[in-house]
């Protein structure tokens, strides 16, 4: 339970060293101490909620305007909903969100395939830029990749002597 507040005017010496010049936020902040009045400003009109928007449990409501890009879906969406049960101060929030991002990338590929689109990785990774401006290194990386893959394939498909 919250404890009763203390009335500053009854505290001995209250404010005797207050110095408005001592403001390390200058000039970033035009201080008006409006926040002392709490969450009382006249808010902009509220954007109607058409899609699912998760909100931080460190605030009471949705912001007056919000983004509607890519609402939570599928497994990654479930993980994200879970993450939002924890505050921004908790690993319980951020680690599941990172996990959801990785899951979401797989869902993205499945979704592409379901729509009959095979993602063109060479294009998406922007390898054309590497081909034009960094060819040697690209070729070396592809060669190493191919070598590692063929060694791995050879190893995995090798004839075992003992059978």
């Amino acid at each position: 339970m919250e404890q009763p507040r203390i009335d500053p005017s009854r505290v001995k010496g209250w404010g005797v060293d207050a110095d408005p010049e001592n403001d390390p936020t200058y000039p970033m902040k035009k201080r008006n101490n409006g926040e002392h009045a709490g969450y009382t400003w006249e808010r902009p009109p509220q954007q109607p909620t058409g899609v699912e928007v998760l909100h931080s449990n460190e605030r009471p409501n949705l912001t007056a305007a919000f983004g509607t890009s890519t609402p939570p879906v599928a497994l990654s969406g479930m993980i994200r909903r879970l993450a939002f049960k924890y505050s921004e101060s908790s690993y319980g929030h951020w680690l599941p969100l990172m996990l959801a991002d990785r899951v979401n990338a797989v869902e993205g590929v499945l979704d592409d395939l379901a729509h009959g689109h095979v993602p063109n990785l060479i294009d998406e990774l922007g390898w054309k830029a590497e081909w034009e401006h960094n060819r040697k290194s690209l070729v070396a990386r592809v060669a190493v990749g191919a070598l590692v893959t063929s060694v791995a394939v050879a190893y995995l498909t090798r004839k075992r002597r003992d059978d």
Partner: peptide, 18 residues
């Protein structure tokens, strides 16, 4: 919002629910 009113436009309280 009180932060915008103080010109902390990068710290608005009415633009990011998440």
């Amino acid at each position: 919002c009180v932060f915008c009113q103080q010109e902390l436009y990068g710290n608005c309280h009415e633009s990011n629910s998440q």
